[in-house]
Design a binder for these strands. Structure first.
Lengths: 211, 211
DNA sequence: ACCTGAACACCGTTCAAGT
DNA sequence: ACCTGAACACCGTTCAAGT
């Protein structure tokens, strides 16, 4: 076997490009990702990327792929479904919070994307093994996915309030409703993990009540 | 009072611009909204818009304002909280589904935006009147908002599957998980209103079990 | 085979100039 | 006072040309 000649930079590849794109999104936000910026990150002209991806949408799909590959979903076991449900929710939530700028990409939920389909399939396997019938499993998947993504977005959207609260300077909207004003300090001091747990409990108990 | 002289076009105004922007988003999607395109819609050069809005982000906030103004939230009454909760969820859901391309704008949930704060305050008033303490009311608001927006996004994201199912042509991702494949026909035939109701029941029952 | 450079039709935004 | 036109620094995308 021949020794690999070490050039100044590794050759371009789908995964190297997608990983670089995720790095830009994580550091500078979704809007900062452009073909030319991506090329610069890779030490190449932006147009070289078109050898590996047909367009920008395909690159964003590649970023989703990279993200969901990080989502380790354990194989079905005989653990009670409540525990499985809670653990999957926490795992997914942790992934979203590690990549807050990428949440809108995952919110789109394109099941036609192989990476999304693989992850959804793994969760379905868990739910079916836990005794859910096909229809309930699908509706439960929809419910939990919607909730976890929704909360992550709420969290990012209300972050300014919490940091304002930490600084003691509230961003009071003019003529805000008194009921909301009453709650602003509470919102500012809100423990998001706690709020997430509140809703997760609500959903688990609701599912128990249904079955 | 003087008769209004009818010129070829009405003068520019914040609300006229925001309404035109929403119309473009509804018809052609978020990406189609540009300053020049917006100007054309109003019969004006795109740069004229800068007289009324400092930048494009402000215009998007204006679109959120127009959308949330459509959200009629009734004043508190002595109706059981479960009914109030369900009705608010349905009203919000209906608004989102009437403007599917605008959902990402509402998902961001900037409470510092007066329009968002007003709507959130009105819902808080309902929950407080229904007997929720301040903390539970806030966490409940977070839960329901997250769920309704999350489901709407799930629905938009899985729409290709349902229309493919209607045409009888499935978009099968290569090497999809067998558990998911089993469920694809079900997903394609899914009644989204029904799935939404499933999760709403789950949450209402869960909230009942907590109190 | 893989990357570059120039080009095209767009962007958001600024600002001097017109009326 | 309100809008326009030209300009600036960017976009995504295509494609002939380079090595």
């Amino acid at each position: 076997m021949s020794a690999l000649s070490t050039h100044t930079r590794a050759p371009l590849s789908r995964s190297r490009i997608a990983t670089a794109a995720l790095a830009i999104v994580d550091r500078e936000g979704l809007d900062a990702l452009s073909m030319r910026r991506l090329g610069a990150e890779l030490g190449v002209e932006g147009m070289a990327v078109y050898r590996h991806f047909p367009n920008k949408a395909a690159i964003l799909a590649g970023v989703v792929e990279v993200l969901l590959a990080k989502l380790v979903i354990p194989p079905p076991s005989d653990v009670p479904w409540q525990a499985v449900f809670r653990e999957l929710s926490h795992t997914y939530r942790a992934l979203l919070l590690r990549h807050p700028h990428a949440i809108p990409l995952l919110a789109a939920l394109p099941l036609s994307d192989p990476a999304t389909a693989r992850a959804a399939g793994a969760v379905m396997a868990q739910l079916r093994a836990a005794g859910f019938d096909a229809q309930s499993a699908l509706k439960t998947l929809a419910t939990i996915t919607s909730y976890v993504i929704g909360v992550a977005q709420w969290e990012v959207g209300t972050a300014p309030y919490r940091s304002a609260g930490a600084r003691g300077s509230f961003v009071l909207p003019p003529a805000a409703d008194p009921y909301l004003v009453e709650l602003l300090p509470q919102l500012a001091a809100d423990d998001c993990d706690d709020t997430f747990e509140f809703g997760l409990d609500v959903i688990v108990r609701g599912l128990e009540a249904r079955s």
